[in-house]
Design a protein around this nucleic acid. Structure first.
Length: 958
RNA sequence: GCGCAUGUGGCGUAAUUGGCAGCCGCGCCAGACUUAGGAUCUGGUGCCGAAAGGCGUGGGGGUUCGAGUCCCUCCAUGCGCACCA
């Protein structure tokens, strides 16, 4: 019989489920391997063909590793808290838990149809109280920990209290961390708690945050793109708020240096390096003239300190009010106000515009004693360094622009090229010799920097300092659908909920909106108090909380006593292969490393990095279809029903509109919308209700403006569509649903085709037309195990126990070798084409030998598990093919003793000459020179040189 | 502007170490069969040329007996960062 993928795929999916084929248990006798996919956020739109790409790749790898004898952990779950479900809840009043559960059910159904080998008994959902109990527990560990700079790891706050108690904190908490003089025993409890909050890894503080009024919540830096929210695209503004944050900055250095030990894509590492943004420099205090105190600045160029001609503060700087003189006050106030009201977006779009105002105050140059005017400028960022800079217009582009704008002096202190005009352009290059710089004169920049720092430290002006761009992660969200932060307030002091009271379950509320006083939705919860007495924290955790440790929960998902047992943690240790999208570079992938390091420090887990190897799968893009249109005379709008479609690939007015991909028909390399399809489209989509085709002639009679251009237009029995490759998205009408592909071609075919499209990491457009190739392959594979009777198409099972021929052995083992190499280097596309070659060659030989076809089924099984399982059963096995062993390539079956050497003259191949591979260089050369063709090609000339590479090539140079 | 990728037939791509460029598939062309199908099978298909032959991996230059692969330079596309002192 013909291969019936519908029946057979259903059969095996049910069988796998019933027999728990993919259930994993710890087995110390076997080596473990952990393959993880980034778990999906179950959106309402369901999966499109781009989503499973990475899952298919990881599934193939997992199945391969299983066949190689590894004990596989290959779980899946859902990142189920998040904004879209809550936005939907606000609109419809439906509880987000309900829509989330529905979406998960749909995802699960779609995933099941693809035939993944996930161990669903280990499924996690971040919104499940039995899961977020441990997310909250980890939060409390962060709350109860501080970062000890001496031991360079996180410790319990108890050890910090001990330091405060016995006074030895001074040796540990130096520089910025130094709290000044502490008399712990005589402090009030509130004072003590206030102090500890400055060191806890989870802490609450007044901070400038990204506030998104439209979403009603704060956002983390990586959730903001170009001044708009990543989700929804709403404007974001800066606002000072009391906020929960995580002290990820404590881990900046380790997050940076440990990148060296993990096998992750260079682009991800580079993005993380940039995001962490380490720079070495110095903190220096410039005393104020005629005022107490000074301005503390951070600079990476202490070598240019003699080039300072003014100071600049950010408008938000705390000293602004203090130092502004009476005369300047009005101007300064106005500037500060306007700077504050400008959104980030505006500030960014006006990057080139230099603005600022003089405070009237002066600082004193620490070495020359010169008076330096103190300015305010919004090019100085409040959040970086100290929010103030020493301005060196000679050697910093931004300072230069500011100095020119306001007529401030430009001093050169580094010797650049002779023709360089320092008035024209600052010399920012970090090389050259110091000039006009007192004790630094004559030193190269590279030597001057440490020399300047030494002097600054010796004179007590400041110290060397490493600065990071990385900010602490804002952790509170003024939203409903997230993990409640397990904290309550006693006399306004945040206190940890006791472990025994976890989880703090998300309470029911009447509406998912902020209260009238602008409190988060959780403030609506009735009688929601800790022990009936204390107010709970009302913000919830951000979307990335649950995903920062989920890979650990899979190791022991049912555990009630701990987030995972020591045994399972020690067995599975870390993810061996992690596959997911590159868009998480500075979000999830940084946070999961941070939480991992923290849990490692506190001794809860045995490894300090979450994933040994990471691969980013590329995006599968969609083909968006466009059709030329003209407006109906009686309308001015561009909605589909206000237009006529006409047939031309080059629209006369440049106006095109989108047509849903599934209505396009493909013919001769072009896409068309036919009359029939248009009819269907009009029925299915109300937007297209009144759309009609129009002929060129009618366009002209409708509107004489087009009359002269009629030649371009053709008669529209159908219209040609233009297309563009874009991101696959519902709004672009270019989404392909895997279900529709599976219905038509089967899951194995989808799996093969997704892999066949190209290298995993590359983005590439989906084109359903090509899928016939892999569908044919599956048919041919099936046929290989069958014969068709004389004159009939009836297929009969036909596998013999005959000994394969030498040629057949060779095909098999060559394929084993290639496919093994391909999988090992994650080159799944090439292994699919190797399968095709193998099946083509075996078909040619009419090979039906068990000794060849049985290993072939195993070889194919990671890619096309359903058909492989069916063939395996028909071959007489009663256990699953997943319990088989991956075949091993035996070289003796494919080594050749003769090689057809390409013989080239001056690097250009002329012909092939078979020569025994056992011959030496000299013997090969002799053989080649004797050949008839060579004599002809040389035409009597003597070669200058003959290059012989045994087993590869012969090149004759004349 | 800075950083990181990527550029190969009409299309998706292959070439693992510097060694026959274009494997495999789509599409296309020609043919066979005919239960007339968007089915199956056979052959062909980088470009120019009737052929011999020539030209070809984004452009230009270089190293080498030999370059898709290495180096320099320019261009294009994508992604990331972007007043980070």
């Amino acid at each position: 019989m013909e291969y019936d993928f519908r029946e057979i795929e259903k059969k095996w999916q049910a069988w796998w489920k019933e027999n728990q084929v993919y259930k994993t248990i710890e087995d110390p006798t076997r080596p473990k391997y952990y393959v993880l996919d980034m778990f999906p956020y179950p959106s309402g739109a369901g999966l499109h063909v781009g989503h499973p790409l990475g899952y298919i790749a990881s599934d193939i790898y997992a199945r391969y590793k299983r066949l190689k004898g590894f004990n596989l952990l290959h779980p899946m779950g859902f990142d189920a808290f998040g904004l879209p479900a809550e936005q939907y809840a606000i609109q419809t009043g439906q509880h987000p838990a309900r829509t989330t559960a529905e979406n998960i059910a749909r995802y699960r159904h779609q995933l099941d149809r693809i035939g993944f080998s996930f161990d669903w008994s280990r499924e996690v959902r971040t919104c499940d109280p039995s899961y977020y109990k441990w997310t909250q527990w980890i939060f409390l560990q962060l709350f109860n920990s501080w970062y000890n700079p001496v031991t360079d790891k996180a410790e319990s706050v108890d050890s910090l209290v001990t330091l405060f108690r016995n006074g030895s904190y001074r040796e540990v908490l130096t520089g910025n961390l130094n709290p000044g003089d502490i008399d712990w025993e005589n402090m009030t409890e509130a004072g003590q708690q206030e102090l500890l909050l400055r060191y806890r890894l989870a802490y609450i503080s007044e901070a400038t945050v990204n506030w998104c009024p439209k979403l009603g919540t704060v956002l983390a830096n990586e959730e903001v793109k170009d001044g708009f929210s990543e989700r929804g695209g709403y404007p974001v503004e800066r606002k000072r708020m009391r906020q929960w944050s995580l002290r990820i900055t404590a881990y900046a250095e380790r997050l940076l240096t440990d990148l060296q030990e993990i096998d992750w894509p260079e682009s991800i590492k580079e993005q993380q390096r940039n995001w962490i943004g380490r720079s070495e420099g110095a903190l220096v205090t410039f005393q104020l003239k005629d005022l107490k105190g000074g301005i503390k600045i951070f600079t990476t160029r202490p070598d240019t300190i003699f080039g300072v001609s003014f100071m600049t503060l950010s408008p938000e700087h705390e000293l602004v009010d203090e130092i502004t003189t009476l005369q300047q006050k009005a101007q300064v106030d106005e500037y500060v106000m306007s700077a504050r009201n400008r959104s980030d977006r505006e500030r960014m779009s006006e990057v080139k515009k230099v603005t600022g105002v003089f405070t009237g105050a002066y600082a004193i140059h620490p070495f020359t004693g010169a008076s330096l005017p103190v300015w305010i400028g919004d090019y100085v960022l409040p959040g970086y360094g100290t929010g103030a800079v020493m301005s060196v217009p000679g050697h910093d582009e931004r300072d230069h622009a500011f100095a020119i704008e306001f007529g401030l002096p430009v001093v050169q202190v580094i010797k650049g090229p002779d023709e360089w005009d320092i008035r024209e352009k600052s010399y920012d290059v970090k090389s050259g010799k110091c000039i006009n710089s007192d004790f630094l004169n004559g030193l190269d920049v590279q030597d001057a920097i440490p020399a300047a720092i030494r002097k600054i430290e010796a004179d007590g002006l400041g110290s060397g300092k490493i600065q990071y761009r990385l900010r602490d992660a804002v952790f509170g969200r003024q939203r409903y659908w997230g993990e409640p932060i397990p904290v309550f307030y006693k006399d306004h002091i945040p206190c940890a909920v006791a472990d025994k009271d976890l989880p703090v379950v998300l309470p029911e509320v009447d509406k998912y909106l902020p209260t009238e006083d602008g409190e988060p939705p959780l403030a609506r919860a009735k009688d929601w108090r800790y022990n009936g007495l204390f107010d709970f924290e009302t913000t919830t955790m951000p979307g990335w909380a649950g995903s920062s440790w989920y890979y650990l929960r899979y190791m022991d998902p049912g555990n009630q006593e701990a987030f995972a047992s020591a045994e399972s943690l020690n067995y599975w240790r870390q993810v061996d292969l992690y596959i997911g999208g590159a868009e998480h570079a500075t979000g999830h992938l940084l946070y999961v490393r941070f939480w991992t390091k923290f849990l490692y420090d506190r001794g809860y887990i045995p490894v300090g990095e979450p994933a040994k190897k990471l691969i980013n799968q590329g995006m599968i893009q969609g083909m968006s279809m466009f059709c030329s249109f003209v407006r109906r005379p009686d309308t001015t709008n561009n909605t589909p029903d206000g237009v006529f479609l006409y047939d031309t690939p080059s629209p006369i007015e440049g106006d095109v509109m989108r047509i849903p991909y599934e209505f396009a028909e493909f013919e001769n390399g072009k896409y068309f919308l036919t009359r029939e399809k248009l009819k269907q489209l009009k029925e299915e989509n109300i937007l297209f209700r009144d759309v009609e085709f129009i002929s060129g002639k009618d366009i002209a009679s409708m509107n004489p403006v087009y009359a002269g251009r009629l030649r371009e237009l053709r008669n529209p029995g159908r219209v040609e569509l233009q297309y563009e490759v874009e991101k696959m998205s519902k709004s672009k009408w270019n989404v392909i649903n895997p279900d529709s592909i599976i219905d038509k071609f089967g899951a194995d075919c989808l799996r093969l085709y997704e892999m066949f499209l190209g290298p995993l990491e590359l983005s590439k457009p989906w084109n359903t037309n090509g899928i016939n190739g892999t569908a044919n392959f599956i048919r041919k594979l099936w046929k290989l195990y069958h014969t068709t009777g004389e004159g009939s198409r009836e297929m009969q099972w036909s596998v013999t126990d005959e000994e394969p021929s030498r040629e057949e052995w060779k095909i098999l083992h060559k394929t084993i070798k290639k496919v093994t190499d391909d999988i090992e280097r994650f080159s799944f596309n090439t292994s699919v084409s190797n399968f095709m070659i193998c099946v083509n060659e075996l078909t040619e030989l009419r090979c039906n030998k068990r000794a060849v076809l049985e290993p072939l089924a195993v070889l194919v099984s990671p890619y096309a598990p359903h058909i492989a399982e069916e063939l395996w059963e028909k071959l007489g096995h009663s256990t699953s093919i997943t319990r088989a062993s991956f075949p091993v390539a035996r070289e003796e079956f494919f080594v050749e003793d003769v090689f057809a050497y390409p013989i080239s003259v001056n690097g250009k191949t002329k012909f092939n000459l078979p020569i025994a591979l056992t011959l030496t260089r000299d013997e090969i050369e002799r053989e080649v020179m004797l050949a008839e063709e060579v004599r002809k090609l040389l035409a009597g000339k003597t070669p200058k040189k003959v290059v012989v590479v045994p087993g590869r090539i012969v090149n004759i140079v004349v």
